[in-house]
Amino acid sequence: MSNAIHLHYEVSGEDFTRAGEASGAVKKRLKSLGYSPDAIRRVAIAMYEAEINMVIHAEGGFCDVDIYPDRVEVLLSDRGPGIPDVEKAMQEGYSTAPANVRSLGFGAGMGLPNIKKYSDEMRIDTTIGVGTKLYLTVRVNQ
C-alpha cells in the first residue's frame, strides 16, 4: 500500500528516562487516526518494551514505524552487542539486565516475551558484535 505513514525516531541510549518517547508519540498518532483501543494498547506496549531493551542493552538505536490502515509495522534497529541466544532471551524471566536497571523495576525478563505476546508477528535478526534488528507487526482485529 502506498499511503503508509512513516515515522522515524532516534532512541537515545544516554538518558534512560527518555525511553518510551517514541511509543508515546506513536500512540498519540494512532488515536488521531481512530485506531481501535486494543490495537493502540498492543502497539504501545510492544514498542515500549522494545525501546527499553535498546536502551538497556544497546545504548539506543532507531525506531521506524509504518502505519497502514490495517496494521502497524515497527523496525527497531541498534548497533549493540547482539543477542547470543535468542531462544533463551525469549524465555519469560530470563534477563541479563544489570542491577541498577532492575532496581527501577525493569529487567524482569519479560521484555521479549511481552513483545511477542502483544504483537501479531515478530522477527529478530541479530549478529554478535554488530547489532540487532527487531521487526514487529500489530494488526487491527476486524
Binding site: 499511503n3 505513514i5 498518532r29 488521531s32 487516526l33 481512530g34 485506531y35 502505519i67 490502515p69
Partner: peptide, 9 residues
Amino acid sequence: IAKAMNMMS
C-alpha cells in the same frame, strides 16, 4: 481511516 491517514500525512 484512509482519509484520516491522508490528513495525517
